[in-house]
Amino acid sequence: MTALINEQGLRHDGRRIEDLRPIKIEVGILKNANGSAYIEFGKNKIIAAVYGPKEVHPKHMALPDRAVLRCRYHMSPFSTDTRKNPAPSRREIEISKVVREALEPAIMINDYPRTAIDVFLEVLQSDGGSRCAGINAASVALADAGINMRDLVSACAAGKVGGQVVLDLDDTEDKEGQADVPVAIMPNFDQVTLFQLDGILTQEEFKKAFGFALGGCRKLYQLQKEALMKKYFGHGEPIVEENE
């Protein structure tokens, strides 16, 4: 197999240390959902759908002063090399939780008392960094649904591969590498909403990786913004007449 980082400092797929994989975000791809988005992030292909705010079932789950945010991250059985059992795994349950907690700080849930907001992430094809890719899609889907938000949430991982700190690990690098650090932020408020780390990093490497991840998040924010702009402002200059 090829080296994870060759003599020219290039990674096994030809990227430099601080390069992202190719990313494509599309907003509003499902008819039924109140908001939706599709993201390709390397080989990841993920659909995000938002339903809500809507009535809560069962009713006793409703909260009097805010919306209940529910999140499901799920991998299709055909999304992986060997078939994945369709029942939710412990990994998927944990990711559903951290994704929910990464999105919630940005959503103004107090504006929607007694309702539920459901976020579904379906991983059609998986690659490294699917939770970050999913968060990016979910956050634009929420904006597409017109739910009040303090900010978007932008996510990107950094890590250590072949002894070097790199941005955005793919599947191979995730498996063969030494560390993976997924991070999500609210880019206009400089707040971290998701942070996980596995692997070994020295304190210096940690600080470098964290910095790389923040840089990646900022790039993702631009892509999210472009995707929303394209869907909503594809034409012309803004005008509005006074009406009613």
Partner: peptide
């Protein structure tokens, strides 16, 4: 945040629907 005997960081997890500032993350390490 989990460190090994050499002081290297080997695992991390943020939880709950709140946030940490970038500076708080650094000092947490």
């Amino acid at each position: 945040i989990t460190t090994d005997s050499n002081g290297n960081i080997c695992a991390g997890q943020k939880g709950n629907a709140g946030t940490f500032s970038f500076e708080q993350m650094q000092s947490a390490a």
